[in-house]
Design a protein around this nucleic acid. Structure first.
Lengths: 161, 161
DNA sequence: CAATTGGAGTTCCCTTACGGAACTCCACGT
DNA sequence: ACGTGGAGTTCCGTAAGGGAACTCCAATTG
């Protein structure tokens, strides 16, 4: 679809979207996270076309989010999360929380998280990594950071992340 | 591109993606969040085609993420975040954090958050909403929830969020 | 040893979605 | 009466997605 690339924007949100923003990518990440590691397994689970799955997996491997690992001494491969990819799962957990609150309806959440540290059914909450207090949309001011100027060339792309 | 809808999957991640998963939608949300409220303003900032911007704004309004508000006693409209939309910004904040860590490079973050409660430059951290301890990809077990069975019809779509 | 199986993609065709530029509509302002 | 500016619409060409069939290749199976 002749998609515009976001990678030249001075915005970490846009750059993150360049990594996992394409259709199906977050769901592929989810599948790998929960233990589906093989092409046909993921394809069957999601129903995504094989062509697109190939493209997405390659992209995620190129970006260092997934690692392609041979198994079985045959041309067989499994996909595993890298550290970079594992940190992306934070995003999925927040999506899960929002989706539970706003789209699950009467039926309730399809999936529950049990926090191993405390043993309870729980969801993630966003907190300030300095003071530990809640930190959401209305709790922050945005300031230009060091990476702001570098890409700023007047071309119509603002940054807020 | 004949995109498959995710809304019938028993997965809150998939459902969330049906709301803001389309190309440009997260960046539109970001723009509205930081105070860009008008069509031409957002269009100019992102460089998205007017057609797509129209579609996305309508979709976000339909989903209750944005509110379309007339101003100036003329056919002029502004877009504002609803509560539902404001909570989606959590997602953007997590994206910003990941993008800063993994894509910003030498230059550093283009944007910084100052947490109003403590006055410090900070980022969000994911914590358990019960015990307050860190809660990331490896810290949880997944259990089926009440909303799991409802949509389960054997069609190849698993759920993990 | 030939045939089959099964994972992991490729290839091909068709449809849909995106980009970009031009065009429309309409309530002012001058 | 004419021009302006915001907010879309329309149109066309290109590229991305869906789906099914096809390929490749190392084991098994017969």
């Amino acid at each position: 679809m002749q998609r515009t690339t976001f990678s030249d924007m001075a915005c970490s949100i846009a750059r993150t979207l360049d990594v996992i923003g394409e259709p199906w990518s977050p769901l592929i990440l989810r599948d790998v996270w929960v233990g589906m590691r093989r092409f046909d397994e993921i394809q069957g689970d999601l129903g995504v076309s094989r062509k697109v799955l190939t493209e997405r997996l390659n992209h995620l491997v190129d970006e260092g989010v997934l690692e392609r690992r041979p198994y079985d001494n045959r041309p067989r491969f499994e996909y595993h999360l890298t550290v970079k990819g594992t940190e992306l799962v934070d995003l999925l957990m927040v999506m899960k929380g929002w989706g539970d609150r706003w789209t699950a309806g009467e039926a309730g959440p399809p999936i529950l998280y049990r926090h191993r540290a405390c043993g309870r059914i729980a969801d993630v909450d966003l907190r300030c990594d300095h003071c530990g207090e809640p930190m959401h949309a209305g709790d922050v001011d945005l300031l230009p950071g060091p990476g702001m100027a570098v890409v700023a060339d007047g071309a119509g792309d603002a940054a807020a992340g």
